[in-house]
Amino acid sequence: MTAVAPGPANITVMDLARDDLSQVNQDLQKADPRGGPFRVLNPRGAHALACGLTSGIDVEIEGHTGYYCAGMNQAARVTVSGNAGVGVAENMMSGEVWVKGDASQSAGATAHGGLLVVEGNTAARCGISLKGADIVVKGDVGHMSMFLAQAGRLVVLGDAGDSLGDSIYEARIYVRGKVASLGADCIEKEMREEHRTELRDLLERAGCDGVGLDGFRRYGSARQLYHFKAENLDSY
């Protein structure tokens, strides 16, 4: 273990101003979930920090992270007290990734499970090719968010950029603010009771206290693009 200087209440402190990034990642990957939480200082925009974690540990990162932070996460709860670079929580399988600031492009890309919460805004392509995870963004999301998303849910408390949900499959999108434009085959859909229940649950899990369901609209696939149609046979 590179980790030294245990803090109060058996917190293990790792400092990237001093500790090697690969070693910190390996130590986190081997960490015993019955132990205390980990605090990572001075991330300084390092790439692939806290990637590939497989146990239910708590990791608090104090500062801004680089590309692919908490990628491939399983079971761990990773908090970034700062902004996250490109591809935060990409390909997450389970667990929770919580960004206190903004997230860059492709937040939660291809994630299969777990919850990604972004307190600020995300840049373009949030939830691209999402495969089952849930994403809650308390600010705005950039253009082409949920492009090709197959399963999972995205909740946006602010606005969404152009081409939301382009070529979407069976993922669901809830937006409270304005949608600049919808992508190909993405349409607004009726908000039924099951959707209100699902949205209420997602807001609660993301700590959106006092946020009502009023104003939220639901978007999803028109299912015109991905079904094979016999009359289009000549095109193949």
């Binding site: 925009g45 390092a46 790439h47 680089g66 600031g101």
Partner: peptide, 16 residues
């Protein structure tokens, strides 16, 4: 990338 900026004085409190 953000890491190019980390050596600047006061970056922790900068608007990023």
């Amino acid at each position: 990338e953000y890491r190019a900026l980390v050596s600047l004085p006061g970056i922790e409190k900068a608007k990023v």
